[in-house]
Design a protein around this nucleic acid. Structure first.
Lengths: 145, 145
DNA sequence: CCATTGGGTTGCTTGTTGCAACCCACTGCG
DNA sequence: CGCAGTGGGTTGCAACAAGCAACCCAATGG
């Protein structure tokens, strides 16, 4: 499909992939730690890790020779998924939070304030809303009728 | 799972849901238009639309009485998925683009410049990077060993 | 010498998808 | 009036993907 969203979903748009990436951000590196944290079946995890490595999101590194042991760490490409995770985190907090459980909060250590991630225009720094955006070429998917 | 990312994925983390939402942003409203644009099976589409309506992402509105005809439009909750779509769009553009095809560009109509969406701190307006963020409570998913 | 750990593979069963066919209510057309 | 076309689905079946449990192997610790 000739759409960047679709191509992104092709890489991470599947039940486990993004959760694996989230765990990788949280510092998880090893097979059994992913497994323990996610409760995913071993074969499915092996499959997902392999495909994320093949797509360049994770890198498989041997950190011990005998016995051979591997760890999975984010590549630069994988680290650039952070905005996707942050926006999803925010949406989930806002719309799907448990009433009783306070959500995890984020602190921006450079300004030492609790932060909410907002998506802004790289040029004028204002928050982006759909009404103020135009695609070029224009993509209106309503067929002529 | 007690994680906002996981809860978000529970709603939209499935092969078609987010593509349906993307089309809804592009103005698609009717069953057969989604179908034509996505190439999705009818039963699966009916199922996804139903679940997105049940989760409050889309609203099903009758726009014609006899014969009954319905359209699916984004709710405020659904419209707030825009940041997720924009960040995914950007990632796909950057890392999964066809070499030959120029990606769709976004123009911010308020400043009339081509824009890239960046994720910034709501407080200090700087771009957020993982190294400058702390979660609270701290979520490090590396079990003590 | 035996249990444990890391990192898997294999086989079987169950749940999801996709595809095609069908359905129903209406509209427009001749 | 009859009949094709359109919107919005449901039903049935086949193919594939995911989950679960069992097994494997190499090394390490005691």
């Amino acid at each position: 499909m000739e759409c960047s969203v679709a191509r992104t979903l092709d890489v991470i748009g599947e039940r486990w992939s993004l959760l694996i990436v989230r765990d990788a951000f949280y510092g998880v590196r090893r097979f059994d730690d992913f497994r323990a944290d996610l409760g995913i079946a071993r074969n499915v995890l092996a499959d997902r890790l392999g495909s994320l490595v093949a797509r360049g999101v994770l890198e498989r590194r041997q950190y011990e020779a005998r016995p051979p042991r591997y760890e999975y760490v984010l590549t630069p490409k994988g680290r650039e998924l952070l905005p996707v995770l942050l926006t999803m985190m925010r949406w989930g907090d806002r719309w799907e939070a448990d009433d009783d459980a306070a959500p995890v909060t984020l602190t921006h250590t450079t300004c030492e304030h609790e932060t909410t991630p907002v998506v802004t225009c790289a040029h004028c720094a204002q928050e982006l809303s759909w009404g103020e955006l135009r695609t070029d070429p224009i993509r209106v998917r309503i067929p002529a009728r």
